[in-house]
Write a protein that binds this DNA or RNA. Sequence first.
DNA 1: GCCGTCACG
DNA 2: ACGTACGTGACGGCA
Length: 609
Amino acid sequence: MKQHTLFGETKESDAGNESIVTLPPSNLPSFIPSEAGMCKFDLSFTIAATGKDLTSDSTVGIALCKEKGKAYYVPIRHSQGLNLTDALNIIKSYLEDTSIAKIGHNLKHDILMLRKEGVHVKGIIYDTMIGSYLLNSNKPDHSLENVALEYLLYKKRSYLEVIGKHHSFADVPIDEATLYAAEDAELAMELKELLFKKLWDEGLEGLYFNMEMPLIYVLADMEEAGIKIQRDRIRQLSKELDEELIKLRQKIFLLSGEEFNINSPKQLSKILFENLGLKPLKKTKTGYSTGMDILEELAKSHDLPGEILNYRTLFKLKTTYIDTLPVLVNKKTGRLHTSFNQTVTATGRLSSSEPNVQNIPIRGPWGTKIREAFVAEEGHILLSADYSQVELRILAHMSNDSGLIEAFKTNVDVHTRTAADLYGIPKEAVTQDMRRTAKTVNFGVIYGISPYGLSDTLKISPKEAGLFIGEYFKKHRSVQKYIEETLVSARTNGYVTTMLGRKRLTPEINSSNALTRQQAERMAINSPIQGTAADLIKIAMIGIWRRLKERGLKTRLILQIHDELLLEVPENELREVKNLVKYEMENAISLSVPIKVEIGCGKSWAEAH
DNA sequence: GCCGTCACG
DNA sequence: ACGTACGTGACGGCA
């Protein structure tokens, strides 16, 4: 059989090699693929697409680059060029070959686009976008334009410039298209060399190769899988909400004495603070604040603020979820496909967009109703697995605080224990109110506590808040010491790290502006904790994904919500998958306290969680 | 395009 | 006098 080759290499057939990625069974570092001589060569590639919005995106061509100055453009759906099948066969012979390492910028996107063409990228990958992210997670933009500008001092021509007066990329003359697409592939190849060295210098190579790169495949599968929602159920909710909103509007206008746009904070301010003469409690940049905490306070002296809050709740649920989710259901799959963004957050968490599946309502009756519309496919069950108090457990481990460690080892309620400490009473005497206060303090510690922040949340004076904080640190000297050490290290190194070595730069930590400096200090305290929790669940996701593949199970990971994983499980796999998921999550890394995962199952997300 | 607001962890 | 809890994304209003 004749093999297409672009670079003149000889290609041995590797029939039967079905492995996707093969990495050590658990944890980091150890093994750098192309350095270990596992790959024949590195190949940089990039997809040229029609652009527009993602749903109607279609692949026009693919550029392949083996070394600088040596790149090819394979037209797939270009107005001029190859027959589609021939083109795809050439592409497959490279991108499905596990003995070739692939380089790209935002590979998950390209991998997913190619899957729609029946091309399944396999093997070792290097994503330069994620390289840039690991080097500085504070940057808001890791696009190829930006990264090439920062590291190569190269100003790319904009996509719109290339399209020019043509209708789409498919109509750009093929010579020009080749230059443009090949340039992207070349840039990624150059960036890989440069960023790779920097990652190695900073000790980030383990995180890169053993966590973020494998995770690309996991996230691609999750996005591709999507989740089923019951559209008729949501439409029903929309009708109910409409009726409620109409009633609320009338009530509000009656209380206000006039009609106005309730959604306009400016118009609302006039009603509240001018017409009704209520006391404005806080200012924003543009006027008086009408935020939730303020309206809750004002609700004590007038009926209107409470109704405004009710209105806002329902309006939010309707516009952001009820009316939007059905529109985003994919026509082909009938399911909802989010994007999991791997290079957005400063701490190492994922984010989710279009739609954001990480902020689907859960509280209140409407939260339940909305989550009831997220369901398992026929013959399947949704399984939700939740880390319990994961950030506090991580704090216990990182600070090595004997009190916290003992609390988790003996499985007592940690907030109740903190309450007993704070009030100096036995656990049995702790009231619900005391426990709630202690819970807020525990969260506060993770957020980089301050008397002002705590007083604001607890609605007590900063002085009282300061007493709580003092009492907490008296009982948890190790936590206090840990925080101080973290700050010292941030000040001297200019960054903080997670347990797995993920970095967050802290450029403002020595600022002469106290406000700026204190803000940087809170970030420096919070990031190692939030970031370690992010590392933990990422390792668990890769572990689960591998085990599922190993055992040939049909179960799919569907969603990640920071400390929760949602899986869609065929009924007959449920028992096995429950154990598998719990094990991988609880043993992803080893702490000096147990890691606890709670599992729930059901036909809907509401039932499972 | 920014601001205020609010949904989630 | 100053005055913030950490991390996100999406909406409507308004320049």
